[in-house]
């Protein structure tokens, strides 16, 4: 058995009584105004917020809405605001929290109901806006040809940034994004930093400038760094934001026409 690094309550100890308050609202039932509802349950050994919510839904209130798929911090579905800060319910042990826990849906995304939000719609719009896919001049792709080789170090570096699960925590934690809803967010900048590393993406910096070189893009970032602090995947967001800012600033001062692909 793998030893947990987190202090677990001893078997013979009386479990803590958790009080979980959820901000509830279902846009499909607008006549029911937004309200706070508190549930009480006993803390169990190794309990995550996701397990607690599941127990509440099973034993107390089947109408409680929240999302999950993987239960292992990979799908990004269960992101929510936990005691004021965005995080993944499945990666948050209740032992890390006080007895009173306040949960709210992620701000900045379309609310489905209670703790469930539609991050997919936002992420798709973001992906289309910054064109987060490989851009190649080769119109014809030879599927029979072996893929071009890549140095393992480079593949690792790309993979490091590709670990983003699009949970939306960085956007919900961003004061800039809260004030200015058109702000592109760290998730988008991280994606472009990933494509910039990838030799298969034939865009140059002037092309990236076209999609994030304005005050809704990288220059809107006010370096509040909450994105870097809350990212459940510990992505190097501060480093990537600074990196893209330097590259885009260089385009802005170079004065060249940027040689758009045509």
């Amino acid at each position: 058995m793998i030893e947990s690094p987190v202090a677990l309550p001893a078997e013979n100890q009386t479990p803590r009584r958790l009080r979980i308050t959820v901000l509830r609202y279902n846009p499909a039932v607008p006549e029911q105004l937004p309200r706070l509802q508190t549930y009480e349950l006993d803390e169990a050994v190794g309990m995550t917020l996701f397990i607690a919510l599941g127990e509440i839904r099973e034993t107390q209130d089947p109408s409680l809405q929240f999302d999950f798929v993987c239960r292992a911090g990979i799908c990004g579905s269960c992101a929510m605001v936990i005691n004021g800060r965005p995080g993944l319910a499945c990666r948050t042990l209740t032992t890390q929290l006080p007895e009173t826990i306040a949960l709210a849906p992620l701000p900045g995304f379309a609310l489905i109901g209670d703790l469930s939000v539609d991050t997919g719609k936002w992420m798709r719009a973001m992906s289309e806006r910054v064109e987060s896919w490989l851009h190649s001049h080769d119109v014809e792709v030879d599927l029979d040809r072996a893929e071009a080789r890549m140095e393992p170090e480079l593949a690792e570096a790309i993979y490091e940034l590709d670990r983003c699960i699009e949970c939306g925590c960085c956007v919900a934690a961003c004061g800039t994004a809260r004030m200015r809803e058109d702000f592109v967010g760290a998730v988008a900048v991280n994606k472009l930093a990933r494509f910039r590393l990838d030799p298969r993406d034939q865009r140059d910096d002037a092309d990236y400038y076209e999609v994030i070189g304005d005050d809704d893009g990288i220059f809107g970032c006010m370096t509040l760094l909450a994105c870097d602090d809350v990212c459940p995947k510990n992505l190097p967001l501060m480093t990537q934001l600074a990196y893209m800012r330097r590259k885009m600033a260089a385009v802005g001062w170079r004065g060249s026409d940027g040689a758009n692909h045509s």
Binding site: A125, R129, E131, W133, D207, V251, G252, N260
Partner: peptide, 29 residues
Amino acid sequence: MHRKAELAVPAAMAVRPRSSRMPAQLDVL
């Protein structure tokens, strides 16, 4: 968040007026 534009072809492949360099310069300044 809103989409910037509906594009039939990937933006980087198309010829289009380039974005202003002013936001970059103001940020550096």
